[in-house]
């Protein structure tokens, strides 16, 4: 177990270096001049050269990359934005909670919806509820997230006026100038984004849960449980669900990791300035340190959640040994 963790950690580092390097290289392959953008429209060529030197952009790429790694390892710093000179760490720290709020809340919404519907569909295949659920699955899979987001925003937020149309409220450390703050405002502002994420992703999950439960119900050990005299709720809880949920756990973990890299469309629709928005903004401005920060955060999120899923899996399924 301990050796397994060490090995996974070493792999994570390798992966981390690879991802950061690739981002670096791609960035430099794009024919653009970040110094020019940073210096501003009216800057003279001399000024641009000065900026270039200041930002270290005149060094060869491997030197820049080495400097980046050195700063990261020894100072724990992702550097500073080319444009704002803000620390990238604090930029990520600002944006990550917003995306995390969206993703975790949305995922809870997904599971609350998908697991019961999936199970009922599996128990009563071809029933009205099952057909309705499958219809919904088709819609959920087919419609793009930004369309659902805009529709909800228009209908629920604007027409009915039940929720805010967009925006985000801090839970802790509410800024002085902000008009809202605290858990209630935070949740109130996130209802629509959560619903959107939920509606978009839950479809896939409903279908997945349904298929897994149906598959598990045909297993011999479920028949064994019934032959022992177990009532249906015990059969379901103790014998079907635990086995059926195994693959679902994997999917949830992977999706959370993936979404933490930025649920770009939903963030954009609801004006949430999370990681997705930050990434897009930094790409537009060729702000490499910020982009690099978001990419690495996403990579780490995926690495961490994959590891978490593997550990969880080993805990749920005794057949899996971590060696």
């Amino acid at each position: 177990m301990f050796r397994y963790l060490i090995r996974r950690l070493l792999w994570a580092i390798v992966l981390f270096v690879a991802v950061s390097f690739v981002t670096y290289v791609i960035f430099f392959l794009v024919p653009a001049n970040p110094a020019r953008l940073a210096a501003g429209q009216s800057a003279t060529p001399e000024k641009v050269e000065e900026v270039k030197e200041f930002l270290g952009l005149d060094d060869p790429i491997y030197v820049q990359y080495a400097n980046f790694l050195k700063r990261l390892v020894f100072e724990g710093s992702l550097g500073q934005s080319f444009l704002t000179r803000q620390s990238v760490n604090s930029e990520i720290m600002r944006a990550a909670p917003i995306t995390a709020s969206l993703v975790f809340g949305g995922m809870i919404f997904v599971l609350l919806m998908a697991i019961p519907i999936g199970i009922f569909s599996a128990l009563r295949p071809r029933s009205l509820l099952d057909r309705a659920a499958m219809m919904y699955v088709l819609i959920g899979i087919s419609l793009p997230s930004f369309w659902i987001g805009l529709m909800l925003s228009y209908l629920v937020g604007y027409r009915l006026g039940l929720t805010p149309i967009a925006g985000y409220c801090e839970v802790f450390s509410v800024p002085e100038a902000s008009q809202c703050g605290g858990v209630l405002d935070w949740a109130y502002h996130l209802i629509l984004p959560w619903t959107t994420l939920g509606l978009v992703i839950a479809g896939t999950y409903v279908r997945f849960v349904r298929a897994e439960v149906m598959e598990t119900m045909t297993q011999d050990y479920v028949r064994t449980a019934r032959a022992k005299g177990a009532p249906e709720n015990v059969v379901m809880r103790s014998h079907v669900l635990r086995n059926a949920m195994l693959p679902v756990v994997t999917m949830v973990g992977m999706d959370i990791g993936l979404l933490l890299g930025g649920a770009i469309f939903i963030e954009a629709v609801f004006g949430l300035n999370g990681l997705g928005g930050t990434a897009i903004e930094s790409i537009g401005r060729f702000d490499l340190p910020v982009l690099q920060g978001v990419v690495l955060f996403g990579a780490i999120a995926i690495i961490v959640f994959t590891l978490f899923v593997d550990l969880l899996y080993a805990w749920i399924d005794p057949r899996i040994r971590l060696t």
Partner: peptide
């Protein structure tokens, strides 16, 4: 089939 008749997770 004893291979499949016991629940693998208990």
């Amino acid at each position: 089939d004893p291979m499949t008749s016991l629940n693998p997770v208990h």
